[in-house]
Amino acid sequence: MLVHTGTDVLDERSRRLLARAGPVVAAAVEVQRRLVDAEQRTRTDLVDELVHAERITADLRARLAAVGFARRGTIAVYVVTTRDRPVPGVPAVAESVAGSVAESAATSAAVLVAAHRGAQCVIAQVTDPARFAAQLRDALAPAGPVVGWALAPGGLADVARAHEVAHRAAAALHAIGTVPASADPSTLGLAGMLAAGTDPAVVAALIEHQVGPLLSYDRRHRTELTRTARTVLESGNLRAAAAQLHLHVNTVRQRCDRIAALLGPDWSGPGHAGDRLLALRLWAVRGALEEAG
């Protein structure tokens, strides 16, 4: 290899060597780039097939085995996303985290990562899926992501269903509003019930019973009484709610008077606040899940 580190002018022989080496190096770099691109396309195709597969064919299983997936083992699907921008570095981080989890458990691990439905989809075969989710979240924390995840209890054959649940869990986390965060439906409480597929009719009836008049009023008048009610109940007092809503406290007080006219004067009292707040949170999560598809 010819390396020039000084300031002296190269002689004719060195210049000829450098001229010949340039195209060779460029060709080698291009070959490496194509190999990396081909490997990523292979992994992207595998992710796409898995999240749409109705059954795992022998061919698909063989291709998964070639990238490290064993026939038996715990499979989980993770959806990594932010509200408004891609999350950088997910493939490298996921590989690193999987290696760390596997090393601590003295086992092997396999990971596939690809962009899917506007998010990064990670399919991992690891011994501790919850730990993997937490470490993935922490490693990507500067980007402010949420990591919704779900187990595939039937292994590879359940990846499609797990991906849908993970996608809905991520949407629920966005609706709740805490970032960075990671959760599966079992740790999301009632929001997790929605993410996992609770009967929409039951949820709709609960929301309508508790806060239906607010929703109707907001639709007719293009107001934000529903959001105001949720913020007041969550914050516990008008001043804190006003700060969160970026409004004057008198404006929030006027909105609360309107809310009381619609729901009753004791709408925020001890006998109703819990149920109303539950309904308002379900309303927010339901909206996020509907947007997520």
Results as ranks from 00 to 15, higher is better:
S100L: 03
S100M: 04
D45E: 12
A62N: 10
V36H: 09
V51F: 01
E39V: 13
V87M: 03
I75T: 14
V87D: 06
V36G: 03
V93P: 03
V90R: 14
R83T: 08
R41C: 05
R63W: 07
A65E: 15
G68K: 07
T82P: 00
V31W: 04
R34K: 08
E30V: 00
R61W: 08
I75G: 06
R33W: 10
A70C: 07
L60K: 06
A94L: 08
E49D: 15
T42E: 13
L35Q: 15
P88R: 14
V31P: 02
L46P: 08
R63N: 11
V79S: 11
Q32F: 02
A66S: 12
G68C: 11
R71A: 12
R33I: 06
P88G: 10
F69V: 12
A66F: 06
L50N: 09
Q32E: 15
R34E: 10
D59R: 09
V29N: 13
V36W: 06
R83W: 02
A58K: 12
P91T: 02
T74V: 14
A94M: 12
V31T: 11
D45A: 15
R83C: 01
V51S: 02
R33A: 15
P86Y: 11
V29C: 07
L50C: 08
R72N: 13
V80L: 08
T82R: 09
E49W: 07
L60I: 04
R33T: 14
I56G: 02
V79N: 11
D45R: 15
R83L: 13
V101P: 02
T44M: 11
V36A: 14
A58D: 06
V29R: 15
A102E: 05
D45G: 15
V79Y: 08
H52K: 08
D37Y: 06
D37W: 06
V47R: 11
P91W: 06
V93K: 09
V77H: 09
R83M: 01
I75P: 04
T81W: 00
L50G: 08
V36Q: 09
H52V: 04
G68W: 10
A62D: 14
L50A: 12
F69S: 08
L60H: 04
V47A: 09
A28Q: 12
A76I: 09
V87P: 10
L35N: 07
D37S: 13
V101S: 00
V97I: 01
A28F: 03
A53M: 01
G99P: 07
A66V: 04
V47T: 10
I56H: 01
A76E: 03
A102G: 05
P86F: 10
V87C: 10
R83Q: 00
S100H: 02
A28E: 15
A92M: 11
V51H: 00
S100A: 05
V87A: 08
A66K: 01
A53N: 01
T81S: 09
D37A: 15
E30F: 05
I75K: 07
H52L: 03
P91L: 00
A70P: 02
R55N: 07
G89C: 04
P88S: 10
Q40A: 15
V51D: 05
P88H: 13
V101D: 00
V93F: 06
A76Q: 06
D37V: 14
D45Q: 12
V80W: 12
R43F: 10
G89K: 04
R63K: 10
E95R: 08
A26Q: 13
A27R: 02
V47G: 09
R34L: 12
